[in-house]
């Protein structure tokens, strides 16, 4: 968006240069265009400023305040909280743990999401059926994600269905403890919750691929693998990037799934600063929150740099 705006601004500016006589009418059109532009963005601005920008400024301010340790904040400017957060080995461990969950979740949601979308777009000939199946993917999301998560517990527990089945068939003698209250359980819950966020954008970008292109590739003798590698994947890039942004930001910002599914045995960046808030250490919690925001901004801009989503979408 920014790029296009800049270019048109520049063009308008350049147009204004040659003849001052034509300037008034041009200025009028630009101001009208500006007004329309502002009207377009105003709903978003009205939502984002009070519900996103303002709170984050408060958090930013709090991260520089000093505290008396009992929830009292002294307005001022100190970097003490940042020094503490950045100097702590705990921060590194928390980020490593969180990034581990993020990567695992991303890999599995991507693989599953990609192939589900691929199947729906290229293998289901009937469009009505494809849309029907697509909607079917969203059915689990009609219930709360907390319910979807805890439903895994009776399945994965020591006396859960999987362990009982394995014990009954004699595959194992002792119940498998790794199934629940483990990193595995956390990843399972995340993948279950977030795969839809991959399916939707990838489905969307795949659906735009012109089928004739693939027919032409087949006619030209391309193998299925080549079609996948040279056509489908590159042309689904924007969907993959969007899905990645959703999955990464949700996993990195979560603490509840980690807490419940790891049985409290694991922590995440967010769960740690939630505990800080619990003992009224607001500035350190705020500093950790700001740090996490910066990390996420960096990750998202990296993704956007790799894939020009805007260009892909308007293609």
């Amino acid at each position: 968006m920014t790029r296009r705006c800049k270019r048109s601004d520049f063009e308008a500016f350049a147009d204004m240069q040659p003849g001052p006589s034509s300037a008034p009418s041009l200025a009028q059109t630009t101001s009208r265009a500006n007004l329309a532009g502002w009207l377009y963005v105003s709903p978003l601005v009205l939502v984002l400023v009070p519900f996103f920008v303002a709170p984050i400024l408060v958090v930013l301010a709090a991260s520089f305040f000093a505290t008396d340790g009992f929830g009292g904040l002294t307005p001022g400017f100190t970097l003490a909280s940042y020094v503490e957060v950045l100097h702590s080995a705990l921060t590194l461990k928390l980020y490593l743990a969180t990034i581990k969950f993020t990567l695992l979740t991303w890999v599995f949601t991507l693989i599953i999401g990609f192939f589900v979308a691929y199947f729906l777009v290229f293998h289901v000939r009937n469009q009505l059926l494809a849309i029907g199946l697509f909607l079917l993917c969203t059915v689990p999301f009609w219930t709360s994600n907390i319910i979807r998560m805890i439903s895994w517990i009776p399945l994965l527990g020591k006396e859960g269905l999987i362990n009982q089945a394995l014990l009954a068939t004699g595959v194992i003698r002792q119940p498998l403890e790794v199934l629940l209250f483990s990193d595995l359980a956390v990843v399972i819950a995340y993948v279950h919750q977030l795969t839809i966020f991959m399916i939707v954008p990838i489905f969307n970008s795949m659906a735009r691929i012109d089928k004739k292109l693939i027919e032409a590739a087949i006619d030209a003798g391309a193998s299925r693998f080549d079609i996948m590698r040279l056509i489908v994947v590159p042309m689904s890039k924007s969907g993959i990037a969007l899905g990645t942004i959703f999955v990464v930001s949700i996993v990195m910002g979560d603490f509840f799934v980690v807490k419940v599914m790891s049985g409290g045995g694991s922590a995440s960046v967010v769960s740690a600063f939630y505990e800080d808030v619990g003992v009224l250490q607001y500035p350190t919690a705020a500093a950790s929150a700001v740090l996490l925001t910066l990390v996420l901004v960096a990750i998202v801009s990296l993704i956007l740099r790799t894939v020009d989503i805007r260009q892909e979408i308007t293609r």
Partner: peptide, 15 residues
Amino acid sequence: DEAAYMNKRWNDFKV
């Protein structure tokens, strides 16, 4: 009194 420190160490235990 050392709640902040305790909390940090507790998070070490969690992670």
